[in-house]
Amino acid sequence: MIEIINLQKKFGENVALNGITTTVKDGEKVVVIGPSGCGKSTFLRCLNCMEDPTGGSIIFGGEDLADMRVDINRHREKMGMVFQQFNLFNNMTVLENIMLAPVHLRTKRLKQAKRKNFGRKIANLFRKEKKALIEITETKASIKKEAEETARKLLARIGLEEKADVYPATLSGGQKQRIAIIRSLAMNPQVILFDEPTSALDPEMVGEVLDLIRELANEGMTMVIVTHEMGFAREVADRVIFMSDGVITEEGTPAEIFDNPQNPRTQHFLRAVLH
């Protein structure tokens, strides 16, 4: 799904990632742990180029995302991201938050197809062999209707149908984060990146968010999760990556990493967080 080869990121002189190589397989749940400042967020944010890598490759959808020439927006649609601070759009209702990108992007493509067809029709006037038109089955209204149905279904799934028309400012942190998660689901992504999704939450709301992530994991969604919730990591991870100083120090199954860590830094870190 994602192949990461010798990924590097420098902020000026500061080396945040110093050569990361790993592969995220289809349906795999990768959990990234490590001390604060070791580059976990930077690693995750380089995967969808929220930070532009300064070296190496990220192969996704048959293209190298680290190449500045690829259309990163198209790939981001297929790579959801969930942030520590939720980042719901404050100027939109919950429903608008979920519908914005699907409606906007599909409408844009519809317009492009119509424009192309128009050009072909004109060109066909002068052609002997007529070129076929692109088949258009949707209208702006149908796109909207479909997106709204999807959005409401997703809201129902997390039990927040009645919040469809309120603004984010009125929601609790747990509600915001669950909505942020279904907002990325509405794009029908192939993988979702989570950057400490529960770190900004009051303790009593951590559970509801982890429950939702666990559900998605069980349904087979591919995920890369940065988290400090070690219990959760052990439970959902297929593979745990321990990072320190911008490199992968150790990786393995949860049992290998949590029960029998080999590297002294991993041992030290786990001793500190588990006790």
Binding site: M50, N73, M81, A101, R183
Partner: peptide, 14 residues
């Protein structure tokens, strides 16, 4: 907040 921009870019908006 810059998070608003990141939220928008992360779902594929230009």
């Amino acid at each position: 907040d810059y998070g608003q921009t990141e939220g928008g870019r992360s779902v594929g908006l230009s």
